[in-house]
């Protein structure tokens, strides 16, 4: 027979290990029968899901109605809607300072502004890039890869790279100096720091949305364009009357997805702005939840949970819209 090769030996070793692993599993099969095997195969997954996903969901809501600093529900007094009242009590919702929990409302407004700018900017940049990449352009694969690359990086890495780029002694200031503009400490300026949080977010995520939109564009049948060309449609008309309407459903899904993710802005902004600075200019909702629950020794789990529940409701609404759209798209 054939002489054993290295891969054969590896295979034999694996066979040996699996032989040990499978013995008890085969025992279960002999004992319980083939029909019960799927339950055994599902068991690890379902147990982990149960403990670490379903259990937290179940207790998340309950937690929002408790107070104190205890960790477990049994150590925590029931406080009814107190946490929600604390979060929502406001003289004027437009002025966070007038609210009982002014930090929360600062975070809410910061998040809303961020979502607005970030969604608009990301969508625009991703759409333009996807439209360009959809043209029969040379080196499309290279550019697609280039734009996609940041998506794979860690938010911490991105925060640090940009922090350095925007540093007082960073490249951007060096470039500005060449143009005769005095250096600026961007991240210590409220306006600039907010601007660059959006820039970094667009830089980070646009490749992902470009990819999704590009897939949508490439699903548009080519013969439609050929028909439009024969009908002497101008490129602009082709774009607005054929491409965009047909891409419409994809755009809507991307829009909702972008909103869901923008609401949860935290990691890269946290690193970039040294925890939401300057002051609270870049303090967002997730940061508020994190700081209430883990950021200090206060451990305000009840308040943090109440805020989570409120944010969860918003996300749930967005998700339901997305599912609706998805179903409409399929039919």
């Amino acid at each position: 027979m054939s002489t054993p090769k290295a891969t054969d030996l590896g295979g034999r070793a694996l066979d040996f290990v699996m032989g040990i692993v499978e013995a008890p599993i085969n025992g279960f099969e002999r004992l319980m029968g083939r029909k019960r095997m799927p339950y055994l195969f599902l068991a690890p997954n379902l147990i982990l899901f149960g403990i670490f996903t379903f259990l937290p969901i179940a207790i998340a809501v309950g937690y929002a109605f408790t107070g104190g600093t205890g960790l477990f529900v049994s150590d925590r007094p029931f406080v009814g809607f107190d946490n929600f009242r604390q979060l929502l009590q406001c003289e004027d919702y437009l002025r966070p300072g007038s609210c009982r929990e002014s930090l929360f409302w600062t975070a809410v407004w910061n998040t809303l502004w961020f979502v607005g700018f970030n969604v608009a900017a990301t969508l625009l940049v991703a759409l333009v890039t996807a439209l360009i990449l959809n043209r029969a352009i040379a080196a499309r694969g290279f550019f697609r890869a280039m734009f996609f690359y940041p998506v794979l990086l860690s938010p911490v890495v991105i925060g640090l790279i940009w922090k350095w780029f925007l540093d007082r002694n960073g490249l951007l200031n060096a470039f500005l100096q060449m143009l005769g503009v005095p250096p600026e400490i961007f991240l210590l300026d409220v306006g600039w720091s907010r601007f660059f949080v959006v820039v970094v977010s667009v830089w980070f995520h646009m490749g992902f949305y470009t990819l999704i939109l590009l897939a949508g564009l490439q699903a548009i049948p080519k013969d439609l364009y050929e028909a439009a060309a024969i009908d002497a449609a101008s490129p602009r008309r082709t774009l607005f009357r054929i491409t965009l309407p047909l891409l419409g459903p994809n755009l809507l899904v991307v829009l909702i997805l972008l909103m869901i993710r923008s609401v949860q802005i935290f990691d890269e902004a946290w690193v970039l702005t040294n925890g939401g600075g300057p002051g609270t200019a870049n303090s967002f909702i997730v940061q508020y939840i994190y700081q209430m629950a883990f950021g200090s020794d206060l451990r305000l789990f009840g308040l943090a949970s109440a805020a989570s529940v409120l944010m969860g409701l918003v996300l749930l609404a967005l998700t339901l819209i997305q599912l609706r759209l998805g179903r409409k798209m399929e039919s």
């Binding site: 670490f52 996903t53 937290p56 949860q264 994190y290 629950a293 883990f294 989570s308 944010m311």
Partner: peptide, 17 residues
């Protein structure tokens, strides 16, 4: 569970851990 983001359940998930 694809629909449930970590940010929403991070407090209770921490307690479970």
């Amino acid at each position: 569970t694809l629909m449930i983001p970590l940010t929403v359940v991070m407090v209770p998930a921490y307690l479970v851990v």
